[in-house]
Each structure stands twice: as C-alpha cells, then as structure tokens.
Amino acid sequence: MKSIKLATSAAAIVAVSASAAIARDQVQIAGSSTVLPYAAIVAEAFGENFDFPTPVVEGGGSGAGRKKLCEGVGENTIDIANSSSRIKQSDIDLCASNGVTEIQEVRIGYDGIVFASDINGPDYAFEPADWYNALAKKVAVDGKLVDNANKTWADVKDGFPAQDILAFIPGTKHGTREVFDVKVIEAGCEATGAFDLFKDANGGDKKAAEKACTALRTDGASVDIDGDYTETLARIEANQNAIGVFGLSFYQNNTDKLRVATMGGVVPSVESIASGEYPVSRPLYFYIKNAHLDVIPGMQEYVEFFVSDDIAGPDGPLAEYGLVPDPELAKTQEAVANRTPMGPLN
C-alpha cells in the first residue's frame, strides 16, 4: 500500500511540476513581521495602481526571510526579504554559496519602540537606567554588583509609583529585542555604572561586559513574549500593573487602550523619532535579489513605488501608519533606480 501511495503521489508530483513551469507573474516577499504591515500597505496600493498583480507578502521573521532569500535563484524562491535588522555576513555568505550574488539593500525608514501600560494606570517618565535597574539580573549598588532586589518601581527611582515591576518584553527571536537590549538595557547599564563594574570583573573585556549587561532577571518580573504585539496587549489588559514594549505603529492603532511612557523625557512620535530626539528606534530594510529583477514582472516597479515620495515620504500612507520616514529617501530612490547592489558590510 505504502509503495502504491508513494508511486501515485510521485506520479502526481511529476505531472504537476511539468505544468508548474508556467512563469510566476507576481512578486513574492517574505520576512520580518514588523515590516509586514508596511509591505502589505504598499503591495495593496501597488496592485490598485499598476497592471501587475498584487505582490504576495509573507511574515515569518527577519532571519527566516533572509535565509529564504538566500536559498538560490529561481522562480520557486522569493524575490525580496523584509528585515527589521541589517543583513548578517553569514546571510551574505549563504547567498553567495547558493549563487545569489547581487543583493540590493533598501532602507525604508525607521521604527520606534515604545513603552506603554494600561490607559488607566499612572504616567511614567523613564530613563534607560530605570529599565536597567528594574530588569537586570545584577545591578550596581554603591559601586558593587549585587543581585537585583527591586520589587516595585518605587524601589527603582524615587517618585515612581509603588507598583510591582512586571514587564512584557519581546522574546529573543524578535528583532525588536535586539534594539531593546542595545538601546535601553546596555545604555542603562552604562548609565548606572554597572558596565564598568562588569568590565573590571571580566578583565576589561568589553564584549563580555555587554553580554553580562543584557542578562535579565529570571524571577518573573520580566516576561518574554514570543508572539506578537496583540499578545502583549492582551497580557496588559489582563494584568494592569504591567508595562509592555510595543512598536510605534501598534501603539498608534491602540491609543485608546495604552498609555505611553516617555523615554529620556521625550514622547515617542513619528516626529520625535525622525529628529533623533527619541532614543529607541531602528532602521527597517528590505533586500532585493537583483537576478530576479528582469524575470519577475513588476518587481522593479514595485521597489521604485515602495520608496517613492507618495508612499514612503512624510505624507505617505506608511508615515501615517507609524513608519518614521527616512531623511535620505532621495538617495535610496536613486540607488533603487540604478539597481546598485550593496557593498560589503562595514
């Protein structure tokens, strides 16, 4: 029976793949779930305004998207990978070994990361140091590293409400976590002086000190959320003491449920992130497989449409949804028009 089944399905596959040689006529995109809504907005507008079919946009995460991009050249591989962090050398090597040599890097803008709690809770004005003292495994007290014993936010800083520390932060598979680690926890680590203590303890090794900084407490005060922001929001609605980490666009869609905290005295908004005042933000990218540009109809048009002023500019739908426009958009438009492949990582 098994062999019959195998043989029949093999026959089905062969019959099917013979007819699958029909050329693919829509752009296929995969990658970061942070970039996904933006890519979907552009894909929708592209389908409306051009004679090409609407591109298919898939999520799956930045790393998975880049890996798929580097699987090889051919119509059953994707054309564009969305990514919320920069491509890694290992990805480029994987690409090269599979014959994907020319990749374009397109920076579409910046994404802000905000700290928000239940709308009915108290206001917070955070500094990175506060988050470090609240969540780190070891904190600096009187020039010594001790285990974090802070129970409430009032223990962290005078003037904060006596509310239990409970933070929902993105899990380690998220690109957002990396930004949170670097821009908040490491910054706080340095500001509280814990960084120097770690450095001394590790014999001046900076890398080891950074790693020690990002070790968070495991007693339940900091909870990793591996799902998406909707899960974080649901957890906050269930537990009103908690503070969650969100993307700016998600917060802007839920301003009636969330109260946003300031960071370094700045309220997060598209403007304050564009000006660089708000400290916690990161660039968003997509990566283009140049070999597909002339094969897949509409791919070049889609890419140019994505970075056009109508879409990615300050008054476009992306900015309205929460993307912080890139001040160097004109440069990107030129590079995309010339199909300039990215140079080596610096």
Partner: peptide, 19 residues
C-alpha cells in the same frame, strides 16, 4: 521538503496545500 524544495512547486499555492 518534497513538494516545494525538491519538486519545485510554487510557494503559497493551493496545490501544495492540497497535497
């Protein structure tokens, strides 16, 4: 592994889902 990577069927297609 079989239908997409080996047989080269397209991604996101109902045929693969159906198989």
């Amino acid at each position: 592994a079989v239908f997409i990577n080996y047989a080269g069927l397209p991604q996101s297609a109902p045929i693969v889902g159906g198989l």
